[in-house]
Design a protein around this nucleic acid. Sequence first.
DNA 1: AAATGACCAAATGAACAAATTAGTCATTAC
DNA 2: GTAATGACTAATTTGTTCATTTGGTCATTT
Lengths: 190, 190
Amino acid sequence: MAIDRKQLILEAAKKSFSLFGYKATTMDQVAKLANVGKGTIYTFFKSKEEILDEIVTSLIRDMKAEAENAIDPNSRFDENIHRVLIRFLEFRKSHQLTIKLFQEEREIGTKAVVDVIQRVEQAIIDYMKGIIQDAIDRGEIKECNPEITAFVMLETYVALIFDWEQHHPPLDKEEMSDLFKLYFFEGLLK
Amino acid sequence: MAIDRKQLILEAAKKSFSLFGYKATTMDQVAKLANVGKGTIYTFFKSKEEILDEIVTSLIRDMKAEAENAIDPNSRFDENIHRVLIRFLEFRKSHQLTIKLFQEEREIGTKAVVDVIQRVEQAIIDYMKGIIQDAIDRGEIKECNPEITAFVMLETYVALIFDWEQHHPPLDKEEMSDLFKLYFFEGLLK
DNA sequence: AAATGACCAAATGAACAAATTAGTCATTAC
DNA sequence: GTAATGACTAATTTGTTCATTTGGTCATTT
């Protein structure tokens, strides 16, 4: 069986995006890394951006899979959603590709990258939305707009994990979990 | 009594920063606007950045004053802190200077501006910290770290007011208040 | 029929010149 | 004598040019 050229190209592109970022990766480089002629790339993808799109689509699949097995059916909703969020954000923190892409989004703002990051965030929110809706349906939590709730939870976690550390000592997972429980589930009122 | 040159300079600089931003404002322009020689500026300020610092210091004073009279001693803590936050963020949204500075921080990242924005945010957090500590002392809310709580509340509001609107219809004050109460005070758990 | 790389127009960026700018200080005005 | 000034300077920024690089095409090869 012949080598799967499309897969070779995707892997080469992913490696190069991870190493140098989207903008700094040239199609010649991808072709060379994949050991194919440059023209070959264009029989599988109609543009550089489409390669990124496809890589991110599978990235989102991976993230969802990770999140999936963070869920313990025997645990309460608040513990599950906490673990899911932590998984998402640790994924983002530990994979070279997401590190590079988020960095490029902040520092350069390459349009294709901005678009793709937006897609990742929306995917996370959509995933959480489902979990939240389930919890509402099962009567575990109060009625609320699942999309806004997911959005606010994600923003809070991102703030605590990425922004708080800018000027303060980082919080460990234990603390995060306690804060999350206090703010979102038990409430501050006595 | 002679005209207060220092005040003239501050007002000229504030007007120009508001109109064109910090970076795009030249000292020649400030001098011309203030009707003073450029050298005069340097008898009152040691640098362009010091002018910005002084303007922002009084801006923070104004914001605090605004926040102060958003507080109603007869209202509950959660209503007060909501009103305070809304005031801060409406101030930011309605004053040309803050609009320009936040925009310049995002789009150009001028160092002096980044520093000064950080100072504004820390001032808001410090102010909220005091209110939160009071509420804890009075037994109105549970024990919690006032700085982290203030930080998370501010980030949540900024997310809901500025980021949510990027891809969704904006929330009105009523909705914000309800969300805030639900997430932070009553908690989601049934 | 699939793969290729020479080729092209467009985009990028290196390099240099010109213009602008923050800050100084000798001179001026009172 | 002192407070105010604006011409001056060193340094940064901006505009311009042009050679190189880039994403994408397509005639040729395998």
